[in-house]
Design a protein around this nucleic acid. Structure first.
Lengths: 341, 341
DNA sequence: CTGAAAGCGCTTACAG
DNA sequence: CTGAAAGCGCTTACAG
């Protein structure tokens, strides 16, 4: 299958010639139609149409010193998490007439050559642990607009953050397990060591237990990745050492899948014998069996809000230092409640 | 939070001045270091480093008449399907040093203004039903490189396609239901009317039944979207009119979730009374209960292969007219086999 | 409301 | 191996 180049595209000069006006007028028509006289406008329109003229973006970017593009930097493209976030980002970029450039970087490897930067984007949305503190610091020095998602910047760097409310929601969830379902031995698969969301959730977990006069048994706080397999293994290990466990709270819904599988193998009936609750409310959560009680994280909004903040930062030089989006308890069946089937 | 612009970036001219050479030499160093003398190279390196020089992409693009960027055009960002595909695409663009621009367009609405085109990308990957035949035709006329995913072009348009093998795999799957599990009344939730994959799967379904001396009962072929809710409703309707149904084949795994839910409510035990099988092998499929027998679709490879074809088309003007990636039967529990738990 | 001209930051034949 | 100069296709003060 062959694709041979055709006649080169018409340029602004061609349009000007055909319309019998100057290139400046064409440019004005493009950027500010109302300053061009009604009559001229018509001629220009016709000329553009008959030449099928499409302005050259590179030339406009060069002359304007901006790219009208924002970048999204990720470590990888995985998980249910990613899709709604991207949808939120893409929705706003589309609305605001920005283009969206996406790139992954190996997790903090090869710190030099970033594929996205001032040379091709007006600003950057940075997801989670994508960049090292050092890189963030350098990029901040150049005043390149950036917004972080689900990660606070190093203390002295004024980079805006968009993330979700973790602690209060978790406290509410654990309190529900204690008050309504009488759970006492609540395992917590907290997630990765350095994940900030996990840290806040752990605070909520501890606060809930302490507030009920309990004391946190450190055996119940298990570290690990957000990952089905790890959830599966951690659950088996937890019940091996603490068979009295009567509830498992996982740092995300993804992990809950592994937990449910492990409990099934152990012959523990959920939720009769053991409650299972998660965090995120991913799209599959209502379809698990039993349907998962969890905290709804507004992931799509995180994406859209981060994009709005970034565009504001680009345009006005200002943004909210921190945006904390509200989360919400979603009661289903896996905690022990009677979820309408 | 404020972000004030800083001193403008160094240009090639600044570097040339500091290094005491011409801008042409700097440009050569950038594009073809080996043609610059060892000695000059050192001086240039130092100058670039001390000025923290970053070449301006817009200027390079303008001078080169290319963007080093490829575009991905979608109707929406949804489903488990999207993530692996994007991962495949992004992997190759990264490898080949292309940037990736992503945009959605409302499904064939507003046919004029595409956000992606020759003005900002060297070529385009087009997913499914994103563009009308008319648009494809116009863009083909300009010899703009494009590759279609999961959709053939109109007959006379030479646009390369990357998709998967649907028919043979489906025939194998249905044959398995008939031969191994003795199923005879196999409902088929085929998916959207105009989806080409669905069309091929339907051919496989019919071929399998016919090959076994059966006759296809048209009541068993149900149209609908790829969607849990529709799967749920279609299943209820199917069993209402045909309670003898002993298997359901859904056009994708997503829909199978709704099918399983409906069967549970109907009190039909899967797979003892009814087999359920899907297509795609999405990440959640092994975690459904029971684990889903399905056809594995190499979605990530579809993404990477489409990207390779596009880059080849851009660079050489040639690409394979059609790339059909192999699919594979994945036996789990929901068909009736004994899947190792 | 419109035009002439300089400039955006690079690349690349053409000479040497 | 290197430089001077034209060109890539736009935008935008400056005049008028």
């Amino acid at each position: 299958m062959t694709n041979t180049p055709t006649t080169p595209n018409a340029t602004i000069r061609d349009v000007a010639r055909l319309a019998g006006v100057s290139v400046a007028t064409i440019s004005r028509y493009l950027n500010n139609p109302e300053v061009v006289s009604e009559e001229t406008r018509k001629v220009v329109q016709d000329a553009m149409a008959s030449l099928k003229y499409v302005p050259n973006t590179a030339a406009r970017n060069l002359a304007n010193r901006r790219t009208n593009t924002i970048g999204l930097l990720l470590t990888d493209i995985r998980s249910d998490f990613f899709t709604p976030m991207l949808r939120g980002i893409e929705g706003v970029t589309n609305e605001e007439n920005y283009r969206l450039l996406i790139s992954t970087v190996g997790n903090r490897l090869n710190p030099q050559a970033l594929p996205l930067g001032p040379e091709n984007t007006d600003g950057l949305i940075i997801f989670l642990d994508t960049l090292s503190e050092d890189q963030l610091r350098k990029m901040t020095e150049t005043h390149y607009p950036m917004v972080l998602i689900h990660q606070s910047p190093p203390a002295d760097l004024p980079i805006p953050v968009v993330t979700i409310e973790n602690k209060a929601a978790t406290q509410r969830l654990i309190t529900h397990l204690i008050d309504v379902h009488g759970r006492r031995a609540i395992g917590f698969l907290r997630g990765p060591e350095d994940n900030q969301d996990s840290g806040w959730r752990e605070q909520g977990y501890r606060a809930a237990i302490t507030a009920h006069g309990g004391q946190v048994n450190e055996d119940f706080v298990c570290y690990g990745g957000f990952d089905r397999t790890q959830g599966y293994k951690a659950t088996l290990a937890l019940f091996a050492s603490h068979p009295e466990t009567d509830a498992v709270f996982t740092g995300d819904d993804e992990t809950a899948i592994g937990v449910l599988k492990a409990l099934q193998e152990l012959g523990k009936v959920v939720p009769d014998e053991v409650s299972v609750v998660g965090f995120d409310d991913q799209i599959l959560s209502p379809f698990l069996s039993p349907p998962l009680t969890t905290i709804h994280a507004p992931t799509e909004q995180v994406g859209s809000e981060a994009t709005r903040q970034l565009i504001r930062l680009i345009r006005t030089g200002e943004a909210d230092p921190i945006t904390l989006l509200p989360t919400e308890l979603v009661i289903r069946r896996s905690c022990g409640c009677n979820f309408p089937a």
